[in-house]
Design a protein around this nucleic acid. Structure first.
Length: 555
RNA sequence: GGCCAGCUGGUGAAGUGGUUAACACAUCGCCCUCUCAAGGCGACAUUCGCGGGUUCGAACCCCGUGCUGGCUACCA
């Protein structure tokens, strides 16, 4: 046994697997040519960030477009920052957006043959690879304390040297394995470092699917690959996991771009094929004139729960994210207003390079458009889903009489240019509440917005009486309006607005004023959807009741 | 400080040597209209971070420079 082998045995006496064993246990995936295997690999450090949702969307769609595999992996190697239960929460929120992994960490269980999918349960796999690395001299134990490393950094900074543990400063890299073994036997604490062969002066060519070809300095850092707590660092976990989980495309935030040379060297040292890399732009926010990352602490819209709680339709949010991902999407949408968003094929080369500023106004606009294009059944179903969780008033309304609800929200829906009343499901209740008699009664407690400056109570009563006696609800919309014009004239008002504007003195008001009086009487509001449909839905009897009530109140 | 990336209107952006610098959101007008929501029409970058250069011609090519963001951990 060589010294290095002895060292490896001393450090990992319990590891009996070899790399070959792992290769067999996690064989290459049998997939079609061009199938993409990508993953979402969150750290359980809090609720889902809007930027993570963006990254997930991309990691999810590419496999979906190529009959590949989208899996989740929980990167819980930083035990200090971990927030209990957030892993499960992350998966739930993803599901709320319709994103369900094909395999991987699913919250309370795992699915698939390439697990475990929780890094804390993969310690032995990492150790197997590290044991091999040590035997080959690619990794070594380092006994330097964090104080020593800090001192080194200070010294390097003072002397304008590149900081870090590398080259001549990598003290433990030249330690005789025999000495190392002795120190381990003496229970000295240590970490495992990677022995870099790189030279910072050399450039390596790397390829990013989004950014194209780049040149970066070779890595020369002897990075820590196994922390003193026995868990790997990100870099090493990435190497091992994405190799043995057979990831073909690593999609991640652009903050990883600078460490790409480390990953390249790691893959080359292991002798494994590198995955493709796509470094995604980060979603930004304008703050006092400067850009910064969307921050969960400062920006409510940085947490996807914000959208869920406020009733944004998930397809609207997703669609917005697609517009930032591929700007040619908007053009496509214009041609395909009613198509499913995922009929659009995302591509890496159309992806934006700089971090987009998050534009809530645009999100709202898209949501409004999407909500308008849902048919009444879909709309009701989704509204109810939302209401059950976040809007009791709305929930009660839908449960009370689903068909009545559908009738209301179906006003001028299901046509080429549907009404766009709602940006979010939260908007529904305050817009439609007056349709319900008991809620209408409640609204009556407020002052009614009649135009008392122009019309006396007597005039309003006269108009309401006239309308009550001849509503014209038996006609279609056009003839109903003609009938209303007739009533208008009976009241001495002008049935033509233009005409009225020319001779204001001849009439007390015009047909629009009549409409407003009726509208306020039956809804307590100045603005409602098309009056004809509102009247039709309420029905003659209810309208009569409401009008009588108002007449009584004004008398 | 060093390294990397990015910089086209308020926002997302198209654009790769010759365009009136697309389109969408927002904003502001006007029109339509029984209100609202829409819809229609129009305005909104004399100019592509800035300065030079190459060229008959530059947002696009070259050289400088500035700004913004990221990285520079036993965090991911």
């Amino acid at each position: 046994m060589t010294d290095l082998e002895a060292l490896a045995e001393l450090i990992f006496p319990d590891i009996t697997d070899t790399i070959d064993d792992l290769e067999k246990r996690y064989p290459k995936r049998q997939l079609n040519n061009g199938a993409i295997v990508a993953r979402f690999a969150p750290s359980p450090t809090g609720f889902l960030h809007t930027g993570s949702l963006f990254a997930t969307l991309i990691a999810w769609r590419f496999p979906a477009q190529t009959s590949g595999v989208f899996f989740t992996r929980l990167e819980d190697t930083d035990t200090k920052r971990e927030i209990e239960g957030s892993g499960e929460e992350l998966l739930k929120q993803l599901e709320a957006f319709g994103i369900v992994p094909n395999e991987g960490y699913m919250g309370d269980y795992e699915k698939g043959n390439y697990g475990p999918y929780k890094q804390s349960n993969r310690a032995n796999i990492y150790k197997t690879v590290i044991k091999d690395f040590i035997k080959k001299g690619l990794a070594y134990p380092c006994f330097c304390s964090s104080e020593e490393v800090n001192e080194l950094r200070k010294y390097q900074e003072a002397h304008k040297l590149n900081p870090g543990y590398y080259g001549q400063y990598a003290k433990c890299s030249t330690l005789d394995p025999k000495v190392a073994m002795q120190r381990i036997k003496n229970h000295e604490p240590y970490v495992i470092r990677f022995r870099s062969q790189g030279n910072y002066q050399n450039k390596i060519k790397i390829t990013d699917l989004i950014r194209g070809n780049l040149e970066l300095a070779q890595n020369d850092q002897h990075i820590v690959i196994l922390k003193s707590d026995g868990l790997p660092t990100y870099h090493f976990a990435h190497l091992v996991d994405d190799h043995f989980m057979r990831t073909t495309h690593v999609t991640r935030g652009e903050e990883w771009l600078p460490s790409l040379p480390i990953h390249y060297e790691l893959f080359e040292a292991a002798g494994w094929e590198k995955p493709n890399y796509a470094h995604l732009p980060v979603i930004m926010k304008l703050d006092n004139g400067s850009r910064r990352k969307l921050s969960k602490r400062k920006d409510p819209e940085a947490s996807v729960s914000y959208f869920l709680e406020n009733g944004y339709p998930v397809e609207g949010v997703l669609e917005y994210l697609v517009t930032i991902a591929n700007s040619n999407f908007e053009e496509w949408r214009l041609q395909n207003m009613n198509a499913n968003i995922f009929d659009f094929k995302l591509s890496f080369d159309k992806m934006t390079l700089d971090g987009a500023l998050f534009d809530l106004a645009k999100v709202k606009n898209i949501c409004k458009e999407r909500l308008a294009r849902l048919n009444k059944d879909e709309f009701t179903k989704k509204a109810y889903e939302f209401a059950k969780k976040y809007d009791n008033n709305l929930k009660e309304l839908i449960e009370r009489d689903e068909n009545f609800f559908k009738e209301i929200i179906n006003i001028e829906r299901e046509k080429d240019n549907p009404r766009k009343d709602y940006e979010t499901f939260k908007d529904i209740y305050p817009i439609i509440n007056f349709f319900y008699s008991d809620l209408y009664e409640k609204l009556l407690e407020n002052e009614l917005p009649f135009n008392y400056e122009r019309f006396t109570n007597q005039t309003i009563i006269k108009v309401l009486e006239a309308f009550k006696n001849d509503m014209g609800l038996e006609y279609d919309e056009e003839n109903w309006f003609n009938n209303l014009k007739k009533v208008t004239e009976q009241c001495g008002f002008c049935s033509n607005v233009k005409e009225y504007k020319k001779n204001k003195d001849l009439y007390p008001g015009h047909v629009g004023d009549i409409s407003e009086i009726i509208r306020i009487a039956i809804s307590t509001r100045k603005n409602t959807p098309n009056l004809y449909y509102v009247l039709k839905i309420l029905g003659k009897e209810e309208v009569t009741k409401r009008i009588n009530k108002i007449i009584e109140r004004l008398s």
